[in-house]
Amino acid sequence: MEFSFMLMQLGKGFLATVQVFALTLIFSLPLGLLISFGRMSKIFPVRLITKFYISVMRGTPLMLQLIVVYFAPFYVFGLQLPRSYRFTAVIVAFVLNYAAYFAEIYRSGIESMPVGQYEAAKVLGYNKGQTFFKIILPQVIKRVLPPVTNETITLVKDTSLAFVLSVVEMFTAAKQIAASETTIMPLMVAGLFYYIFNLVVALGMEQLEKKLNYYR
């Protein structure tokens, strides 16, 4: 097999990896915030449900969650979904899982905010929405950036789990080539891809952190 052909196959897989990564972040970052609100809600049942949700998402393997999300529509609702649902299922499962982790990160960030910030805003006449979005959230983002970076790097590696639903991302592509050509080279190249991807992610987060360092 041509080296360039292998690279092309890996490249296609890489594209799928990036898609899973990007879509997961885009949806799970805001969803996590919503879930963290539920987790801190004054309404007891809401708090209980979100707490249970988070513990299930964090307490069971992501691989199992992928399978459940994929098969649930059929086994629970009797729905026949097209093959293309596989990719959607991967994204849904990743988003549900990562949102739970992000929710806990946001919660600890929000709870670490000094009460004086809320009180100053209240006395100045800010309403609840203004207080949260103008005063609290920007500071929370700065505080949670390090743990969010950790999760994001884990996500890059977790994308390989998409193989469970036969979505051919980079790792699956590498495994297939490796099997048919009996060489571990594609796996090594894939490893390099992951590494570089993560370097870029870490670098991006570092830049963001620097940007937010204009205040303390």
């Binding site: 910030q117 100053a120 006449g125 920007p138």
Partner: peptide, 23 residues
């Protein structure tokens, strides 16, 4: 307040103008 409670992510000017503008 005793402990000022300025908004650390806002400049001095923004600390002062933000409430008059948004409230």
């Amino acid at each position: 307040f005793q402990s000022f409670n300025l908004f650390p992510h806002y400049s001095v000017l923004k600390n002062i103008i933000d409430a008059p503008m948004s409230v």
